[in-house]
Simulated scan of single mutants.
Amino acid sequence: MKPDLQALRITQAELDQLTGLDVSAVFMGGMIRPSVWKSRRRIVSLLITEGLVLGAVFIVCLGLGLVLVRQRAGFDQLGLLLLGVAGAIALGAIAWHLYQWQRAKTFMTLARLLDECDRHNDIIQALHVMDELEAVQAIGSGFCDRTEVLAALQATRNSLTAALRTETILRRHRVLMQRQQELFATIETNLATLQTLHSNYQASEYRQFLQEALSIGLAVQREMGANVKSG
């Protein structure tokens, strides 16, 4: 691959650094990427990886189970032990995947950005193939202006890396941001309450003023009536 194309790739190490997670084509921070289910090759890779992990866990748990049952005299139900270990591992795997599925909901933005990074790298790989074909056929590039394509890819790369950095910062401070949102909601509620109280106080003052004016008016009326009678 030519150096100009190689420099535009978003490498696996760079993705790990930008996201703060261990990112691969199948996993992102131990969670399964949603795009895995769109690729048969990635599904096979996922099944092989999980099969190896479950197999290793089964062997370790079975070994521990055999060590424990040896301390019990007369225990010869190996099949029951195998069934118990397999059942426990199956339940643990289901619980783990449910937990990861719930956790992955907060990583949907990251998953979409990683998919865009994959598409970006796929375009670069396609350009690399076209460069090889042109080199073999000894013809010039006639499909597009290479300078413009490289500039567009550089702009895309800059946008993706900036978006990944932003997502990482927001994800790391998600709890603080949620607390700030709750604080803002509380402040708005308190302001609305204060405004209501102020309005009620103003209405109470206005009623008191009317009552005092009415009392003064009645007193003046009685005084005038008394003066008329005395005159």
Rank of each mutant, 00 (worst) to 15 (best):
residue 5 L to K: 07
residue 5 L to C: 02
residue 9 R to M: 14
residue 13 A to Q: 08
residue 15 L to D: 01
residue 17 Q to G: 03
residue 21 L to A: 03
residue 24 S to G: 03
residue 26 V to M: 04
residue 26 V to F: 08
residue 29 G to D: 12
residue 29 G to H: 01
residue 30 G to R: 11
residue 33 R to C: 11
residue 36 V to R: 01
residue 38 K to V: 06
residue 38 K to E: 12
residue 41 R to P: 04
residue 43 I to T: 08
residue 47 L to C: 10
residue 51 G to F: 03
residue 55 G to N: 04
residue 57 V to P: 00
residue 58 F to T: 12
residue 65 G to P: 06
residue 66 L to Q: 12
residue 66 L to A: 01
residue 68 L to Q: 11
residue 78 L to N: 00
residue 80 L to W: 12
residue 82 L to C: 00
residue 82 L to A: 11
residue 85 V to D: 03
residue 87 G to K: 08
residue 88 A to G: 15
residue 89 I to S: 04
residue 91 L to D: 14
residue 93 A to F: 14
residue 97 H to P: 00
residue 99 Y to L: 15
residue 108 M to S: 14
residue 113 L to E: 01
residue 114 L to I: 05
residue 115 D to E: 11
residue 115 D to I: 06
residue 116 E to D: 07
residue 116 E to W: 08
residue 117 C to S: 09
residue 117 C to F: 13
residue 121 N to H: 08
residue 121 N to E: 07
residue 127 L to S: 01
residue 132 E to F: 08
residue 132 E to Y: 09
residue 136 V to T: 13
residue 140 G to S: 07
residue 150 L to H: 05
residue 151 A to I: 02
residue 151 A to R: 14
residue 154 Q to Y: 06
residue 155 A to M: 08
residue 156 T to F: 05
residue 159 S to D: 14
residue 160 L to Q: 10
residue 161 T to E: 04
residue 164 L to V: 10
residue 165 R to A: 12
residue 171 R to D: 13
residue 172 R to G: 09
residue 176 L to D: 09
residue 178 Q to S: 14
residue 179 R to D: 08
residue 182 E to C: 01
residue 183 L to P: 05
residue 186 T to F: 09
residue 187 I to N: 12
residue 189 T to Q: 03
residue 201 Y to V: 11
residue 202 Q to I: 15
residue 203 A to F: 12
residue 203 A to E: 05
residue 204 S to H: 01
residue 204 S to M: 14
residue 205 E to T: 14
residue 208 Q to V: 10
residue 209 F to W: 12
residue 216 I to T: 10
residue 220 V to A: 04
residue 224 M to A: 10
residue 225 G to K: 08
residue 225 G to D: 05
residue 229 K to L: 06
residue 229 K to M: 05
